[in-house]
């Protein structure tokens, strides 16, 4: 632990500011709450929002897991885990079931989460309407009026053009029937895990200086049409390591002839299964 810095790096004023914003975020599910995002010793776009949320939550009894792309051992996940081990001296784990706090980029673990766990998402762009309307002043108004016509038009145009909705990740959701919300760039495969999750889910966007939340047991619908219902990715293949046919798969190019193999993106889920089979 580095004694020159406060526990979990942030000063107590900053933690209080974050904690107040987090409580509001939970009280208004899916609504983007502006907060005084600080400059962190990691670059913007690399998880500064998630890191600030985690720092505001973290206590000495926590067990932290950090994943990126579902994996504990990707360099950015390693770096963030190292950071908290250094500035907070807390225990870390790679096992989903052992963690009290999980910070993630781009995935929700395959292992079902429990009520006593909190999932913290790193969010690059919190505004689900941003690619359709660049101006924050406009999108704020659209949220105020719950006017999500833009998104419906976009999805409808997809259908007209491609015969289906052509959004495969960061697939927008409606939280508790009110706020259109970005689930962060998770594959739409993970969207069903947001609905009525036993675990609290917090989202931090450091560069964009906004926090939002999906409380447990909250209705989360992926936006779709009756004649084009929401569906998730499916593979013909199974995981080459653990044989799972129900997890999200990464595609790996294994030779210069373009041969592919598929393996679980969630490395903990995969290794638990492989160990059980051994």
């Amino acid at each position: 632990m580095t004694p020159r810095y406060n526990f979990a790096f942030l000063d107590e004023d900053t933690k209080r500011m974050l904690r107040r914003a987090l409580l509001k975020a939970v009280a208004i599910p899916g609504c983007q709450i502006p907060f005084g995002s600080r400059e962190m010793p990691l670059p913007y776009g690399w998880g500064t929002g998630g890191i600030q949320v985690t720092a505001a939550l973290l206590g000495p009894d926590d067990v932290l897991k950090v994943i990126d792309q579902g994996a504990d051992d990707t360099t950015n996940a390693v770096n963030i885990r190292r950071f908290f081990a250094r500035v907070a001296g807390i225990a870390t784990t790679e096992r989903t079931a052992e963690a009290t706090l999980i910070q993630t980029r781009h995935r929700i673990p395959e292992t079902p989460l429990r009520e006593d766990q909190i999932l913290v998402f790193q969010v690059p762009e919190p505004e689900p309407l941003r690619t359709l309307e660049a101006r924050e002043t406009e999108t704020r108004t659209l949220h105020a009026l719950a006017d999500y016509g833009l998104m419906h038009v976009k999805l409808y145009e997809d259908i007209a053009r491609y015969g289906r909705i052509a959004t495969s990740y960061d697939y927008p959701v409606l939280v508790d029937g009110r706020y259109l919300t970005s689930p962060s760039p998770i594959p739409k495969f993970d969207n069903p895990k947001l609905d009525h999750s036993p675990a609290l889910m917090l989202f931090g966007a450091g560069r964009e200086k906004r926090i939002y939340a999906i409380p447990p047991y909250t209705r989360v619908e992926s936006v779709a049409f009756e004649d084009h219902p929401f569906d998730v990715q499916q593979w013909d293949e199974r995981c080459a390591l653990c044989g799972s046919g129900e997890s999200y798969l990464d595609e790996v190019v294994v030779d210069d002839r373009g041969t592919r193999m598929f393996v679980c993106s969630d490395t903990d889920f995969c290794s638990q299964r492989t160990e059980a089979q051994a």
């Binding site: 670059p43 913007y44 776009g45 690399w46 500064t48 990126d68 792309q69 579902g70 990707t74 950015n76 980029r105 781009h106 995935r107 690059p124 495969s168 990740y169 960061d170 760039p185 998770i186 594959p187 739409k188 495969f189 560069r207 990715q233 999200y248 798969l249 990464d250 595609e251 993106s265």
Partner: peptide, 16 residues
């Protein structure tokens, strides 16, 4: 930070 974050892994989204 944001321009350079593109060098971080995006396997999952790219797979999608």
């Amino acid at each position: 930070g944001f321009v350079q974050h593109l060098k971080l892994p995006h396997y999952v989204d790219f797979q999608a």
